[in-house]
Design a protein around this nucleic acid. Structure first.
Length: 266
DNA sequence: ATGTCAGGAAGATCCTGA
């Protein structure tokens, strides 16, 4: 089974390159973030035309929004409202998978604004609170019991080689010590496997996002690993392959994030 | 590296968010 995560930065605007990706890579399920449309506006028919006929959508007008689209039938399990703000930042589904069920959680963690100080920046406070609530929920609800995948734009690049310069980004939201610590607690709460780093050693650079603001993103290569795929321990022996589709950053009218795909022997 | 994108409301440009 092949699962992709991709922050698409408007699913309606990006549908041509989503179609290109699905035709070329054919994952079983694709998890999208920043769909930026209401559920009724989701481009269902475009996906159906490509053989993806099952949907779990949590959208809202203009901002945020997550979706899981699948070839195989799946059950919508939940759309959790972290921090009780009414934001569309989570959706989960269950696949029957022939008697050994698989759950997928798809997240869009708050970006956190510019100033890494919770006292003066409510967006940063929201991000930190969101992470605390994720950790509590994972532990309390035993979220990682069984076969579970958590994907999404977590808006944090935790390791030194997850950013182009550890030193330059220590005070930049996405790589500050407090964010990294809180993301670590989320991981510990579920004993999650950071699957991307199973395949790429932590000493090697690994990015999934490059700013739109660079004049030449490829030349400067000032990326960050903001997108993640985590797996519960029960999936440890099934992890076959991982791929970051860097070339998608050069596609026509690209997202600033690229697709990340995990292949499981299930 | 404050640069580039997106959506929305308004109105043919601005704003907010990232």
């Amino acid at each position: 089974m092949k699962i992709t995560t991709w922050n698409i930065n408007s699913v309606r605007l990006r549908m041509p390159i989503v179609a290109q990706f699905l035709k070329e890579h054919a994952p079983d399920a694709i998890c999208l973030q920043e769909t930026k449309c209401r559920n009724a506006e989701f481009p269902y028919s475009d996906f159906r035309a490509l053989g993806y006929e099952h949907f779990a959508i949590n959208g809202q007008k203009g901002y945020h929004g997550v979706a899981i689209v699948s070839k195989q039938p799946m059950e919508l399990l939940e759309t959790r409202d972290f921090c009780e703000k009414g934001d569309a930042r989570h959706v989960s589904v269950g696949f029957a998978n022939g008697g050994t069920p698989l759950t997928i959680h798809n997240f869009y963690v708050p970006a956190g604004g510019d100033e890494p100080d919770r006292e003066i920046n409510p967006k940063f406070a929201h991000k930190l609170d969101f992470l605390d609530e994720m950790a509590e929920w994972i532990q309390r609800d035993r979220v990682t019991d069984g076969r579970v995948i958590l994907v999404g734009d977590l808006n944090i690049a935790p390791l030194e080689q997850d950013v182009w310069s550890h030193k330059a980004l220590l005070q930049v939201v996405s790589h500050t010590p407090i964010e990294v610590e809180k993301l670590g607690r989320v991981i510990d709460a579920g004993r999650w496997i950071d699957t991307m780093r199973r395949f790429v050693p932590k000493e090697e650079k690994l990015y999934t996002w490059w700013s739109y603001r660079a004049s030449d993103w490829e030349k400067s290569d000032r990326g960050r690993r903001l997108d993640h795929i985590w797996a519960s321990e029960a999936l440890s022996e099934t992890l076959e392959q991982m791929h970051v589709l860097r070339e998608a950053r050069n596609w026509t009218r690209p997202s600033d994030h690229v697709p990340v795909t995990i292949s499981l022997a299930i």
